[in-house]
């Protein structure tokens, strides 16, 4: 898949994984495993990018004597998902044009 396209899709997938409730690294990968395979290193990069874009905030919580980071979606993150849905409508049109489907 085209890297730019893949990046955008992965970002939104991760945002969706934390949309309804805060989640953590292992759970995000597990929840998304049916949809798309993300390696641990890739997830780190995505989370970092989303944090820099202020689409999520990180909260460190103590869990069974160790630290676990929970990721919480922000308003900007929710907006990003909505934007993506709109963009996707346009992409579908282009796809139909390319394949010749009406």
């Amino acid at each position: 898949m085209d890297t730019q396209l893949r990046k955008g899709i992965l970002d939104v997938c991760v945002l969706m994984a934390i949309k309804n409730e805060d989640s953590y690294g292992y759970k995000i990968i597990k929840d998304l495993s049916d949809v798309i395979k993300i390696s641990e290193s890739t997830l780190y990069t995505i989370l970092k990018r989303l944090e820099e874009g202020e689409m999520l905030i990180v909260r460190s919580t103590e869990y069974e004597g160790r630290i676990r980071k929970y990721y919480h979606i922000t308003q900007v993150g929710i907006q990003r998902i909505e934007e993506f849905k709109k963009e996707w409508g346009e992409i579908k049109k282009v796809y139909a044009f390319i394949t010749g489907d009406k």
Binding site: G25, I67, R68
Partner: peptide, 12 residues
């Protein structure tokens, strides 16, 4: 940050 991310992942 990377190390703690991987460490958490291994624990989980």
């Amino acid at each position: 940050e990377r190390i703690s991310f991987y460490s958490e992942m291994i624990d989980d």
